[in-house]
Design a binder for these strands. Structure first.
Length: 193
DNA sequence: GTTCTAGAAC
DNA sequence: GTTCTAGAAC
């Protein structure tokens, strides 16, 4: 209680924040009996949603073949929300190899990466290197092996990689340089690149 | 995950 | 002198 103001409810450690966000009407976009979709509190692109199962699944490591149907449903609902948000922009659907926040969540993020909340190399590399694992890849692994194996001890090194444009692979020395470059790319689905 | 900020990089 | 990154936060 010492550090919490009297009118704010303590929600525990910051890594548990997603559970509170799931119930936040400001962030919630959609919900049914199996999952909740919220807007990312600090969106890293024009459109950035999180799809969270209601079932308490701590991480990718907890997944078994029994979760296949749920993961396919999460993916489907993610595609729907992306389509509803913007039909032109390209989106990716996937999971961070080693997420900071507890509770399994699939990112639905438009590939413009045009957002003031996108600030650091870690942000960038977490969405544009192999640290970002496509949902389809997760589902494939689960179908094939009955479990998911991503990340590993070298996962953190991925976040330290040099900054590269995700479209043309051009290298940049710092974030402001990269950010002013990527706004010139069209990240639409099918139109001329 | 973010905020803050010291000191590196420019 | 200003911009930018990177590490601590109990």
């Amino acid at each position: 209680m010492a550090k919490e103001t009297a009118n704010k409810k303590a929600t525990g450690h910051w890594s548990m924040g997603l559970l509170a966000s799931m119930d936040d009407p400001e962030l919630r976009v959609e919900a049914d009996d199996k999952l909740v979709i919220i807007k990312d509190k600090y969106p890293k692109a024009k459109y950035h949603f999180l799809v969270l199962p209601r079932e308490k699944i701590p991480s990718l490591k907890s997944l078994t073949a029994q979760h296949l149907e749920l993961l396919q449903y999460i993916h489907k609902k993610g595609e729907e929300i992306a389509d509803r948000a913007n039909k032109e922009l390209r989106f990716r659907f996937g999971y961070h190899a080693v997420p900071s926040m507890s509770h399994l969540h699939m990112h639905v993020i438009s590939q413009d990466f045009d957002s003031p909340c996108l600030k650091t190399k870690k942000h960038w590399n977490s969405f544009t290197t192999q640290y970002f694992v496509d949902s389809s890849e997760i589902i494939r692994q689960l179908e094939k092996k009955g479990k998911v194996e991503v990340g590993g001890p070298d996962a953190n090194e991925l976040l330290k990689q040099d900054l590269r444009c995700h479209v043309c692979k051009k290298k940049f020395a710092n974030m402001p340089g990269l950010k002013s470059h990527i706004v010139f790319h069209n990240v639409t689905k099918s139109k001329n690149k």
